[in-house]
Design a protein around this nucleic acid. Structure first.
Lengths: 208, 208, 208, 208
DNA sequence: CATGAATGAGAATTCATTCAT
DNA sequence: CATGAATGAATTCTCATTCAT
C-alpha cells in the first residue's frame, strides 16, 4: 500500500500507542492539564517534538485515549457476553462483571484516567461527545439486557431504562469513588454488591 | 474593647463567599485549571489582585468551595433526616432524596463542580483528603441507616457496608453522568429509581 | 507650634522610628525587595496603610534607615574619640573600635542591613549618594587621624589616604563577611586584629 | 553509540554561559531582584521563555553565576601562585594581587555583581552556602600562606588566622566600597596599599 | 522519523500605593 | 491618625506548538 520505495517502515501505529499509553499513565497521576507534553514524552521515552509529529494537538492524544478505553471496554464486554450463555439474567451479570473488572485489564491507571476524562467532558465538547456516546452505549446495552430479563419473567419493560440507569450510575460511581476517594469502598465490594443490586432492581415492583 | 482606631470594617467574610461562588460558576463551565483567576475575578466583579488578598492561593479557593459544598450537603441531609420521622426505611429514603435533590439547592453548577472536584482529588492531596472525608462520611451514614433497616427486620447487618457502598456509588455516579454525559439519563430518573434500588438492595438475600 | 487646638498629640516621630526599626529587622532577614510593606507593618505591629501615611514611598523608609545608621555611627564615634584622649594613635584606635563594636549598639541586624544597603547603593542613586557620603566621611576622618599619627612621628603624610583606605576597607569588609558568610571569621577577630593592622600600616616604610 | 536519531545538536552549554553572562551584566546595574528575566533575556538577545528552558529558576542562574565567578577567581589565583615562585612572602603578595586585579579579568561588572551576591547571601541559604564556601576557601588559603611566612621567620603561627582574616576582609571590603561608593577610594589604591597592609600585619608583635 | 531548542501567549502570584471608612 | 480593602502593573514560570537540524 505504501508508496515508500525502501526507507524505514512506518512505526506510526506503535508510536501512537506508546504516546497514548504514556498519557494514560501521566494523566492518572496529574490530571489532564498537568499532563504536559514534556511529561508524556518522558514517560514514553520519546522526544517532546515527536509527539506533535504523530498527533496534531494534545487534545488529539486525549481523544485517542478515550477511544482506546472505550474500544477495550467494548471488546471485553463482547467477550464476556458471548461467554455467558443465553440466559438474560446471566447476560446482565456478565455486563456488570465486564465493567467492574477493576483488577483485570482495567487497571487503576485507567480508572483514574477515566474519572479525569469525565471531568474534561464537562468542558471539552469533543471529549463530551465521546464520553456521552460511551455512556449512552452502555445505557442502551444495559437497557436491552434488563428488558430481556423482564420479558423473560413476563413483566413490563416500562422501567427498563431507569433500572439500566441505576446500574450504569452505580458502576461509574464506583470508578469515581475508587479513584478519588481511595480506600473508602469496602474491599471486594464491586462485583458481588453490584450483582445483588441488579438482582434487587429486578425484583417485583415495590411501592415507592 | 480596643475602641481606638476604628478604621475600615472587614468585609472578608462576604468577599470570600463571593469569590467561592464565582469559582463554582466558572469551574462548572471550564473545569478547575481553566478557571483562571482572571475569569473568577470577572465573574465576581472584582479585581484579580483582590482574590489574592482574600485567599493565599487559587487552591485555597477550591478548598473553601469543597468545604462549602460538603457543609451544605450535611445541612440539607440533617434537615431531611429530622423531617423524615423515626422509621429506618423512611430515614434511608430521606438520605437518598437529600443527595439527589438536583433541582433543589443542589443546582447544576454544583453537580458539575463536584465532578470536577472529584477529578482534582485524583491529583491534589489536599482536595483528595476533603473529598475522601466527604465520601467516607456519606458511607458511614448510609451504613448506619442500612443497618437500622436490617435490624428492624431482624436480619443480619453483615452486608450493610456493601449495600451502603452501592447506594453511595449510584448517587455519585448519577452526578457524574449527569454532568459529563448530559441528556443520557432518563428524566426524573434519580429519585424514584434510586429509591427502588434501595428497596431492592434491602430485599432478602439473593444468591449471588 | 502646632495649630491643632486640642486633638491627639502627634506621634509621627515615634511612629517613624518604629517603622524604620521594623524595616531594619525585616531587611536584615529578607533583603530590601522582599521587605514588603506588609511585612514591615506586621513587624511594627501597624496597619500597612499607615506606613504610607508616615512615608511617601518605601524608598523613603530606606533613606531614613540609612540616615539613622549613619547618625548613630557618627554619634558613637564622637563619643569614643572624645573619650580617647589627645594621643593620635589612641584616637585612631578609638576610630577602629567605634566601628567594629559589633556587640554594642551595632547589632547583627544592623550589620546585615548595612550590607543590604551597600547592594542597594549599586542601583539606587539616592541610596548610593548617602552610602558614598558615609564612606567618604569615614575615609576623611580616618585619613586625618592617620595623618596626625604620621606627623607626630615626623613622617610624611603622603600615604595617609591609602592607609585610611585600607583601614576602612577592612572594617567594611569585616561587616560584609560577618553578615554574608557567617561563622567564617575567627571569634573576636575584629578589634584586636584590626588594631594590629593599623599598627602595621603605620610602621616605617616597607619596600613594596 | 546510538547512531540512530541524530536530531538537533545540543547548544545548552553555550546558551547557559550566555545567560549567566547576561545576568552578570544586568545585575551589576540593577541588583538581583530588578534583574528580571525579561531584562536578562533582552541582554542576551534571547526570548524570555528560553531562559526557563535552560534553567529551572532564576535563582539557578544566580547560582551558576556565583560558581563561575568563584571558579575564575580560583583559576586566576592558581596561575599567579604558580608564577610567583617559592618564597612565602611572594606567594602571599601574589594572593593579594590575584584578588585585587580589578582591571584584569575581574571587570567592574563582576565586582558590582559580587557585592550584590553578598547581599543575596544574607537571605538565600543556597547563595549563602556558596558565598561562605568561597570566603572560607580564601581564608584558609590566606592562613596557610601567612603561616608559611611566619614560620620562615621562625615566629609563632598563632595569629595566622587573624592576620588572614584582616587580609581577606580588606580585599572584600575594597570590592564593596569600589562598587557601592564609587570614587571614594584613592586611584590605584588597592594593590600597593594592600601589599603594605600585608607587610604591616606580618611585622613583629605589637602590643595591642 | 527524530531531536531538542525556540517562541510567545498566558498563568498565578506579588506588592507598592491609594483610598473609603 | 488608623484600618484594611482595592487596584493594576510587573514578575516568574509554564507549556503547547513550531521548526531548524
Amino acid at each position: 500500500m505504501s508508496s515508500r520505495a525502501v526507507g524505514r517502515p512506518s512505526n506510526t501505529a506503535e508510536r501512537r500507542e506508546e504516546i497514548v499509553d504514556a498519557l494514560l499513565s501521566v494523566m492518572s497521576r496529574t490530571g489532564y492539564e498537568q499532563a504536559t507534553i514534556a511529561l508524556i514524552a518522558r514517560e514514553a521515552g520519546l522526544a517532546p517534538g515527536l509527539l506533535h509529529y504523530h498527533f496534531q494537538t494534545k487534545q488529539e492524544i486525549l481523544i485517542a485515549l478515550v477511544e482506546r478505553i472505550v474500544a477495550r471496554r467494548d471488546r471485553r464486554l463482547a467477550a464476556r457476553l458471548s461467554a455467558a450463555g443465553g440466559d438474560p439474567r446471566d447476560q446482565l451479570l456478565a455486563f456488570v462483571d465486564a465493567h467492574v473488572a477493576l483488577g483485570d485489564d482495567a487497571d487503576p491507571r485507567t480508572v483514574a484516567a477515566w474519572v479525569v476524562v469525565g471531568a474534561e467532558a464537562v468542558r471539552q465538547p469533543e471529549v463530551r461527545a465521546l464520553y456521552t456516546e460511551a455512556i449512552a452505549s452502555s445505557l442502551a446495552r444495559a437497557r436491552a439486557l434488563v428488558a430481556a430479563c423482564l420479558r423473560q419473567e413476563g413483566r413490563s419493560t416500562r422501567n427498563a431504562g431507569r433500572i439500566a440507569a441505576a446500574i450504569v450510575s452505580a458502576i461509574e460511581g464506583a470508578f469515581l469513588v475508587h479513584a478519588s476517594a481511595p480506600g473508602t469502598l469496602p474491599d471486594g465490594y464491586a462485583a458481588p454488591t453490584l450483582r445483588r443490586m441488579v438482582a434487587g432492581l429486578l425484583e417485583r415492583e415495590v411501592e415507592t
